[in-house]
Design a protein around this nucleic acid. Sequence first.
DNA 1: CCATCTTTGTGCACGCGTTCACAAAGACAT
DNA 2: ATGTCTTTGTGAACGCGTGCACAAAGATGG
Lengths: 255, 255
Amino acid sequence: MATGRTHRPATRSRGIPEATVARLPLYLRALTALSERSVPTVSSEELATAAGVNSAKLRKDFSYLGSYGTRGVGYDVEYLVYQISRELGLTQDWPVVIVGIGNLGAALANYGGFASRGFRVAALIDADPAQTGKLVAGLPVRHTDELEEIVERNQVSIGVIATPAGAAQEVCDRLVAAGVTSILNFAPTVLSVPDGVDVRKVDLSIELQILAFHEQRKAGEDLGEAVARGTLPKAAEEAADRPGPDGDVPAVMPA
Amino acid sequence: MATGRTHRPATRSRGIPEATVARLPLYLRALTALSERSVPTVSSEELATAAGVNSAKLRKDFSYLGSYGTRGVGYDVEYLVYQISRELGLTQDWPVVIVGIGNLGAALANYGGFASRGFRVAALIDADPAQTGKLVAGLPVRHTDELEEIVERNQVSIGVIATPAGAAQEVCDRLVAAGVTSILNFAPTVLSVPDGVDVRKVDLSIELQILAFHEQRKAGEDLGEAVARGTLPKAAEEAADRPGPDGDVPAVMPA
DNA sequence: CCATCTTTGTGCACGCGTTCACAAAGACAT
DNA sequence: ATGTCTTTGTGAACGCGTGCACAAAGATGG
Ligand SMILES: NC(=O)c1ccc[n+]([C@@H]2O[C@H](COP(=O)([O-])OP(=O)(O)OC[C@H]3O[C@@H](n4cnc5c(N)ncnc54)[C@H](O)[C@@H]3O)[C@@H](O)[C@H]2O)c1
Ligand SMILES: NC(=O)c1ccc[n+]([C@@H]2O[C@H](COP(=O)([O-])OP(=O)(O)OC[C@H]3O[C@@H](n4cnc5c(N)ncnc54)[C@H](O)[C@@H]3O)[C@@H](O)[C@H]2O)c1
């Protein structure tokens, strides 16, 4: 998963487990697709497949929201779409500001999936005076000086940070001081925020590193298994034997 | 967290828990920063703070890699950087292809954080003939027809998908068929892949929806508590009372 | 060499999340 | 009305992840 939430110490918000909340958008997406195809009802099995999860998990997830299914039939698609939307707070509009209109920020601003789910880009903000006033995705880029005013006037509670890492904490502090209580951070830094403020991060580099780990493991597996079976010549065996904690590796980094 | 991994049923790869693997890049980033400041050693407490985690968790994480610390002193920064890099497979170069060079794909191509950690953009691929040959981040965009050849020739095992959702599964299938075994998916779709292929997804929309959920909860909290204390007039009380499973809500979605 | 002090490494307990498996609910046919 | 068949909702068991708390390791100073 390309996301990691900040430590929210097992806060079951109104009885809905955090893990379930994270899956609701997935169900919603699958349900919306069914709704567009005018499918009236769907079974937990079908929906689970569409959402890429286990059907028992899906049923348990829905059970936290209440009993919205009909035994022998399944779930009413429209009704479920409404219930999940309501639970996620998508029946209202959420004004969002994006700070840092560079490569990534501009891509985010142009992203259609934003508006499609009740999120409205209230403003684009950048510190570079050369950017100020430029139109990105039809919106004028505003200068950082106006940040507080924009947040307050538009009642923005969700902020997206797409600045370089060095500027992220400062931007975060200003957003929070101005009233933002939820932050989506694309900069590769750990943000510290006061209690009551949620931070979620998206870090491409971390995702790739996790993939690399598994990739390496896959590559080493065949070799490793061969070693275990003793079907390799001695030399290859030693090469495959990863240096263990016994420390026969150089204490310097080769790069 | 903006990331979700696809169902890897508790595969403790070589005894390192998945949760630990996901944190290693975080530690590595903090350690690299210390290394650049020529800090020789660091305690679990300091490093944990820098990485935004609990110190006990960090120590336990490191214990899976072996005993690399010195009691009473802490961890040798350079040595730890090397060990984690090795564990994550970052001592080798990983060629990566990006498919779908639109707003997002171009931003990713321009992203510096790619190359800084052993990931090398081997090629940019797009289906639009108008894009073919255009330079993005100094690399020429190649046409989808060449996908298989590019992947095979460059021994690419990691692919990034930044196409529209509708094209993602097809692109995924082609990447996998050509030999890619790890995929980072930015398109809002569930990808189905054969066993042995890892998929991680980054979904901005899901992240925002999770934030919206908590945001809504925060907003409703004061009101909800007031209701519980019975300090609200009847009308407001009923308005605050969210419709329960008893179903006094319309079965249609208001939007 | 001994005492003291710092910090690691981990045993242990607890809670969350996942999954199995099944009873009961309800649709539908007869 | 009764029986059959499908599918939900959930009890219960299990495993993973987290965090506390502490013993042991080792550095440091006398
Ligand atoms: N581009 C990607 O694909 C990508 C991927 C993952 C993470 N990131 C991260 O996202 C962030 C942005 O990446 P990018 O490629 O768009 O960088 P960029 O340099 O293209 O854009 C950064 C923008 O932030 C603005 N900025 C700088 N300081 C600011 C401040 N204090 N207040 C407001 N705006 C400020 C700059 O003027 C610039 O327009 C970086 O932290 C990067 O590491 C980018
Ligand atoms: N832009 C964002 O911030 C953002 C955020 C989250 C998710 N996404 C998702 O990322 C994807 C890309 O977003 P975008 O804004 O860059 O869209 P875009 O339309 O700007 O770019 C899509 C690119 O993919 C190419 N393409 C289409 N079909 C292809 C195929 N079969 N093979 C190869 N290339 C193909 C198109 O030619 C185009 O260049 C979308 O699925 C979007 O939902 C984007």
